[in-house]
Design a protein around this nucleic acid. Structure first.
Length: 916
RNA sequence: GGGCGCAUGGCUCAGUUGGUUAGAGCGCCACAUUCACAUUGUGGAGGUCAUAGGUUCAAGUCCUAUUGCGCCCACCA
């Protein structure tokens, strides 16, 4: 054992152990028959990511689970990796190019992808390094990337299988289009945000009676350029006559019909709806139903295209203004009303999305959702906290088809090839709209489109016509189309063997059989739909089983004002800065201790001081134990087991408290209540082991039994706190038990329930109460610690008297008493103060210790002072001009102050009385 | 429009299936430094548990309504 420095210095310690753990391969997981697996796959951070507090929380939780289960004897595998994050990464690299004055389009696809790969090689492992710094005990040999060669094979395989099954189809449909990223987005990628906009009331004249018109209401007047009808509700009496009449679309002078359709709500606006089939999902359905023309009026960048007449090339919002001006001029603008609305926004660049008609690839989700719904309903998969179950089921029950094609370059290119000679794009209704049109039971048959070939590699010739001019689909797949395979594709599925970073071959089937399904998934609520739900569906579809048993959803990390932490708000607390300043263990412990299950986390920097202080406390308590530990003594006694009934009360007490705490810690860790577990350990160690136990045994610290117990309790505590604070515990362990290897490889402290003794805990609690009461009295009288008092403690029952007698040494020591007498009844004495706690009467004699006369004089002086203060305050408050003129809160403060002073006065008088 | 969450001392939050005296951290006040630790110790002040009803022997905890804040979902132009 070597002596410890006076304060814990995390920096040097952490780097040293990180290296040692990795050298020892301590995090490596292998198939171990006879052992139970415990598997977690990391939610792969974006390659563009840098560690933020959300990552820190998310990964600390996972690491605690992994480290806890490792000690419990499981074979733990934590699978690490990163996500290629299609749009996000492409945007980052484009921005970088932009700064150099270059554009993606100028480079061309291949050159641009080279740039992205170069960027990935240079910066892509930043987040991995940072996770290592956090102490994350992932099996780093296995680190995966969603664009790895093998992983890409899995993605292709899945696309082909789903296509063959009829679950992937190509179709023309209205999708969410981001005009800035210029790609389609899935519904989940275009969250609605509230906007303050206007409702524009436009007049559409009749062809035959140009002075008469119908009024339509719209929030996006620029779409009127693409209107091909006006709809009214067939039951709406006001408009019965006009159904079938022809209108003249203003500005465009196009003839459009008035049609009748149930989808129109007569109560909204004027009850007349302009129909723009190419720019609104509802209108699209209506357009299909009524065989209307589909006129696309937008370029992909949301400028008006050639179908917009004189507005061609204007930006959509500029066109909106101009169109309104023009209509006003022609007397065709009825009115403009302010209107609260919500619109989809791109989740990557926050641009307002445009509903846009285009050819895309979709996954039919309803059949995939069926087993995923059942698994959660019957409890094979559980959400923690439970309430997310409902959110998940609600989404799954109303699931829409998934648009998986993206018009960007960075990603898995769609494994589809076209024959230039014979391919004609499909025009297929997606189930999303068949539901709306009332058609049911759409068949899940493989889609047959001549000249369209779905294959992992480019075919030599078109199987339909034999032509050889074949080209690949330009689009790439949604990033989540690769992420949803994460729980099994990371193992190398569907291949037989898989090489890790060290070139070692892993048997994929064997590993999946052992480690899959995974045990727990730890993630944030915002990706339940994006990722969690889809992994469940993929798990069933491709592995025939759930991908994980438990889903733990933690809260969002916010700043102290409740705002989400984000760079743009400038309210970010950088975890690396905290690590640098306070240490990794401090960061981890603080984060965990303040994060209640599933609640959002509110952070400010001061909160990390608690973790740092705790680390330092652990350090110093260990230092104290080691300083006082007699080596030979401990080595001899280490093999002893606790012989409970023969031990002293304090030793029985601290052991009972240790196991009581451990029992609760176990329970809380098993139910994902990490904060409870952390705080229990904190309270036990600091406020019971340090504040009471070590203080009590100090005078008799060399007793063999005390030596043994303080050592054992410390040692067990270190093991229990290890999952939370791996670095400091390792450092202390290496000095406390240098021959016993890494602390993370020790077993979790075995819960010895027979050593939990509530009776002992109660008895001890009484003694602590007595001690506190005596200290309390001393503090009230301002008696210096150097002044030793005489105390008399009286209890009516014999067991209590015996207990206090037994503990009188401890009480005397901790209260700095000269003598302590235990009696049945308290006699009235002169110059004493008294107190009662739990039926125990305590009397402190001030005679000979405190000069009673002097003390009396002091008290008298204080009473005098207090009385004059009270009088002064009363006068102030009696002053009507003060009460009337001063601000209410000032008056209130004065009142409170007066009440306090009066209370003090009463106390002082009581003490004076006691002295007489 | 639907759903969910939150409201507890000056601040930020715990409080598991209803059960003695509602806890913690920070902050505040007083005292203590040749003591493992001032990144400390001892003691203290400070709470109508958002509001109004209800169930119960018993409610911070369960039910109903109300108010305020936050989040998610949604094709009402």
């Amino acid at each position: 054992m070597t002596e410890l420095a006076k304060a814990y210095t995390p920096k040097e310690t952490e780097d040293r152990w990180s290296q040692a753990w990795s050298d020892a391969g301590a995090f490596n997981a292998t198939v171990t028959p006879g052992k139970k697996p415990f598997t977690i796959v990391i939610p792969p951070p974006n390659v563009t990511g840098i560690l933020h507090m959300g990552h820190a929380l998310n990964n600390t939780i996972q690491d605690i689970l992994i480290r806890f289960h490792r000690m419990k004897g499981f074979e733990p595998l934590w699978m690490p990796g990163t996500d290629h994050a299609g749009i996000a990464t492409q945007n980052v690299v484009e921005r970088k190019l932009g700064k150099e004055g270059r554009k993606r389009q100028d480079l061309g696809r291949d050159k641009f992808l080279e740039e992205v790969w170069r960027w990935k090689e240079e910066y892509g492992s930043t987040i991995i390094r940072q996770l290592k710094k956090l102490g994350a005990s992932c099996d780093w040999r296995r680190v995966r990337f969603t664009m790895d060669e093998d992983y890409s094979q899995a993605v292709k395989e899945v696309f082909i299988r789903l296509f063959e099954k009829g679950l992937i189809y190509q179709g023309n449909y209205i999708i969410n289009w981001c005009p800035r990223c210029q790609t389609a987005l899935a519904d989940e990628e275009a969250p609605h945000r509230d906007l303050q906009g206007n409702l524009y009331f436009l007049r559409y004249p009749f062809k035959d009676a140009p002075d008469e018109y119908v009024i339509v209401a719209t929030t996006r007047p620029e779409t009127m350029l693409g209107d091909t009808a006006v709809a009214v509700n067939p039951k709406d009496k006001r408009y019965k006559k006009i159904v079938g009449k022809t209108l003249l679309l203003p500005l465009m002078n196009r003839e459009i019909p008035v049609i009748a359709d149930d989808m129109v709500d007569p109560a909204f606006g004027t009850g007349c709806v302009k129909i723009t089939p190419a720019h609104d999902p509802n209108d699209y359905v209506t357009g299909k139903k009524h065989a209307l023309a589909f006129i696309n009026v937008l370029h992909p960048d949301a400028r008006i295209n050639e179908n917009g007449g004189e507005y061609k090339d204007m930006d959509r919002f500029e066109a909106r203004e101009v169109i309104i001006e023009d209509l006003k001029e022609k007397g065709l603008l009825e009115k403009i009303e302010p209107h609260a609305l919500s619109a989809g926004h791109c989740y990557r660049c926050h641009t307002i999305i445009e509903p846009y008609l285009s050819k895309q690839w979709f996954v039919r989700m309803k059949p995939l959702a069926v087993p995923g719904i059942a698994a959660v309903k019957d409890g094979r998969i559980s959400f923690y906290p439970k309430r997310w179950t409902k959110v998940y089921l609600n989404w799954m029950n109303n699931i829409q088809d998934w648009c998986i094609s993206r018009q960007i370059w960075w990603g898995h290119r769609i494994p589809v090839y076209y024959c230039r000679a014979c391919y004609k794009p499909a025009s297929v209704d997606s189930p999303a709209q068949t539901a709306a049109t009332g058609k049911k039971n759409i068949k899940h048959e493989k889609q047959h489109i001549p000249g369209l070939i779905v294959a992992a590699v480019k075919p030599a010739a078109c199987p339909h016509c034999g032509a050889t001019d074949i080209y690949q689909d330009e689009d790439v797949l949604d990033t989540w189309f690769s992420s949803w395979l994460w729980p099994f594709a990371t193992f190398g599925w569907p291949k037989q063997t898989h090489k890790d970073a060290q070139g070692i071959d892993h048997d994929v089937r064997e590993e999946l059989a052992f480690f899959y399904p995974t045990s727990a998934l730890v993630t944030a609520p915002e990706i339940i739909f994006f990722w969690v739900a889809r992994m469940i569906m993929a798990g069933f579809e491709f592995m025939g089983d759930i991908p994980f048993k438990d889903v733990y959803i933690h809260g969002t990390v916010r700043d102290i004002e409740g705002k989400k932490m984000s760079k743009s708000l400038g309210n970010v607390i950088d975890p690396l800065e905290i690590i640098n300043e306070y240490g990794t263990d401090a960061l981890r412990f603080s984060l965990i201790s303040i994060t209640a299950q599933g609640q959002d986390v509110f952070l400010n920097k001061e909160r990390f001081e608690q973790g740092r202080n705790f680390a330092n406390k652990i350090w110093n308590a260990s230092r104290f134990v080691m300083m006082n530990l007699d080596n030979s003594q401990v080595n001899r006694d280490l093999c002893l087991t606790f012989k409970n009934e023969q031990m002293s009360l304090v030793n029985r007490w601290i052991i009972s408290r240790l196991y009581s705490t451990l029992k609760e810690v176990n329970k809380n860790l098993e139910t994902y209540k990490f904060n409870e577990a952390a705080n229990l350990l904190y309270r036990f160690f600091w406020h019971e082991f340090c504040d009471w136990y070590l203080e009590i045994i100090k005078p008799e610290i060399k007793q063999p039994e005390n030596q043994l117990i303080m050592f054992k309790v410390l040692e067990k505590f270190l093991r229990a706190i290890q999952p939370f604070m791996p670095f400091i515990t390792q450092e202390i362990w290496s000095r406390l038990k240098p021959s016993e290897g890494l602390i993370m490889q020790q077993s979790w402290p075995h819960l010895q329930e027979q050593l939990i003794d509530k009776k002992t805990e109660q008895r001890m609690a009484l003694i602590l109460e007595v001690i506190t009461a005596i200290r309390n009295m001393r503090a009230d009288l301002e008696i210096l610690p150097t002044q030793h008092l005489h105390a008399v403690v009286a209890a009516a029952t014999k067991p209590k008297r015996e207990l206090i007698e037994h503990a009188s040494g401890h009480i005397g020591y901790l209260c700095r008493l000269g003598t302590l007498a235990v009696q049945e009844k308290l006699e009235h004495r002169k110059s004493t103060v008294t107190s009662v706690v739990s039926d125990v009467h305590i009397s402190l004699s001030l005679e000979g210790v405190v000069d009673v006369e002097k003390e009396k004089a002091k008290i008298d002086a204080k009473i005098k002072k207090a009385e004059s203060d009270v009088k002064a305050k009363e006068n102030t408050l009696a002053n009507t001009s003060f009460v009337e003129r001063a601000p209410a809160e000032v008056v209130e403060k004065e009142r409170q102050r007066l009440a306090e002073l009066k209370e003090t006065l009463i106390k002082l008088k009581a003490v004076k009385h006691a002295l007489e």
